[in-house]
Design a protein around this nucleic acid. Structure first.
Lengths: 352, 352
DNA sequence: GTGAAAGCGCTAACAC
DNA sequence: GTGTTAGCGCTTTCAC
């Protein structure tokens, strides 16, 4: 017996099925897509062959012929970031339910790659592109990128989780103002008045909005704004949180509560606080954003703002599909955040 | 001026370019693919138009015509798991360098979806499929899945990070035995003799191998195996680690060092240890596997086994591409692990 | 060098 | 109901 070399085997096509079933390719297509009534016996015969050969129609050809790839492209900053991973999985699930496949592209923080990946998704005939993070987070939109997205939008709707001034991208985003409301309300009600805000870059829209809202709420509550309680421009990781909090302590500043810009940053802040001999939450309360799984890993568990990822992803995909189908609904949709209270936040001490 | 409705705009094709450049489509194709010499002036004209219209060839059509999609499918258990996320990104990078696009499919722990996603990837004409996690982790391979993979392999090579008995899948995997060697050597040299092994299921190949090697090393070092120091079947998350460690303490068992089956499990173990009033590493050392970023988030930072994800991903992709190109090299490649020592492991106390 | 034409595998009119 | 035919956008002989 001749041993068959694996992938030399020609893939089976709709024609092979048709021939063996004694029908036309069109008929096979019809039973596969359920697009028209086919005589039950023929249908049965076709289905049988499909089963027999484990036949799976070529999605490329399908996409080519009806110019519908049924692919939604997802552009993300870094899938290793649990925030994006959660959101991606939610999108994937929603897309699958709607009969779409998602194609993921990571830009890994290199803005130049953002353009490259956008091109790639276009080349793969993505019917819509969802961009989460990256340039759509910028407070001031990059003009070249805006142009590029506008060109893309001529054929392919683009849905973003931030904003891109000068484009008509659909936006689905978290209400940053409200996230800050939740956190401040929580902390204020616990008696905190010296509340620090740590991490993030002001060039990022959501961070900027948080900052504004933070000041606004202080004002409304008659608490003077103290610049020492707000970190200089930082980043969004553990290291940044650690460094910034250390800095604050070194300057002799000691808040009773800290708001970290995300969970990773909070982890760094937590380390700094502990190394300085304070307890959480007895001496200092710590809260953050994103409610990723690491909130449950840290000791104490972290109070954090959740976004209902499942809903977030679903709305992104629904918006994408609506746009594909030509619907031109609201350009901005908002996700309502929710506070998850855990062990890291408690009443303010009385030592102040 | 008539406002143009976004995606009604017909996408530009090679023919549009050809017409405007006054050449044939074939020529445009030639300059795009650099497949033959074209008179420089024509080439320039074409390139100019490509630029002008921001033209990007339709990858579906390309894939159809030369039956090369340039897509590698990646099947993963759950991209939210940092281990898979790291590996995926490494694969993506390597693939991109080689001119391939990766298509990600998550099975989310539902084995039934594994088949579904495999089908999906076939439909998308993935030229090779890399499966990390899921059924290929099983100690005893599922027969139906084996059959399905074998069918797939008739046209599409499948590369796995575990094993699948009864198939000729290429395997690229971590040397589990050696990972245990590293950990045990480290702990033994620190004077530990009561070493617990926590988390994981024995039905998982790598876990099973770790267990065997653990016993083996104990034996070689004249340390009697104590079943109380090994957890009953558990899982791979924080909760499982927490529960299992609590259990152990409740039975009055107190190891001087704990090996957790992965970083998440270690986080749970860490919580349990601390809640029982012990210090890490002074009272109990804690080490684990995977060296994900959470090792740096926990306090103390976790000693963990690293796999060099970048290399791991690269080899997976190289193997995939070699298989696509018909090379039939070694069926099993091994990744050499490396121990990253951090704060969670230290000398055994003398109280024993 | 370069154009004409066939074909990749599928769907969608269009006849019958 | 079902077969025939014409593309979808690209690559690739095959002539010239």
């Amino acid at each position: 017996m001749q041993v068959q070399k694996g992938n030399e085997n020609k893939a089976i096509t709709i024609y092979d099925i048709a021939k063996e079933a004694g029908v036309s390719a069109a008929t096979v297509s019809r039973v596969l897509t359920n697009s028209a009534r086919v005589r039950p016996e023929k249908k049965a015969r076709v289905l049988e062959l499909v089963e027999k050969y484990n036949f799976k129609p070529n999605a490329l050809a399908k996409g080519l012929s009806d110019t519908k790839s049924k692919v939604i492209g997802i552009l993300t900053a870094d899938i290793r970031n649990p925030y994006y991973a959660e959101l991606f999985v939610a999108c994937e699930q929603a897309a699958r339910k709607a009969g779409y496949t998602v194609l993921l592209a990571n830009t890994l923080g290199e803005t130049q790659r953002e353009e490259e990946m956008l091109q790639m998704l276009r080349g793969q005939q993505a019917e819509a592109i969802i961009q989460m993070g990256g340039r759509v987070d910028d407070l001031v939109s990059n003009m070249e990128y805006v142009e590029m997205v506008n060109q893309t939008m001529a054929n392919t709707p683009v849905i973003i989780t931030g904003k891109l001034d000068g484009t008509k991208c659909h936006m689905v985003r978290i209400d940053s103002m409200e996230t800050m409301d939740l956190l401040m309300e929580h902390l204020l009600s616990l008696g905190h008045r010296r509340i620090a805000l740590i991490g993030g870059r002001m060039s990022v829209l959501s961070t900027y909005e948080k900052f504004l809202q933070y000041k606004q709420i202080l004002k409304e509550n008659g608490i003077p704004f103290d610049p020492d309680l707000v970190s200089e421009d930082g980043s969004y990781n553990e290291k940044s949180g650690y460094g910034l909090m250390n800095c604050m302590f070194e300057k002799g500043v000691k808040p009773t509560a800290v708001i970290a810009v995300n969970d990773s940053t909070a982890a760094g802040v937590m380390r700094s606080i502990m190394e300085h001999g304070y307890r959480i939450p007895e001496d200092i309360s710590l809260v953050s954003y994103d409610n990723t799984y690491m909130t449950e890993l840290l000791i104490p568990r972290l109070t954090s703002v959740d976004y209902n990822y499942e809903e977030f992803g679903r709305i992104l995909v629904e918006t994408a599909i609506a746009a594909i189908e030509g619907e031109t609904g609201a350009y901005l949709k908002t996700i309502t955040p929710k506070l998850i209270i855990r062990e890291s936040s408690g009443p303010a001490g009385t030592e102040e």
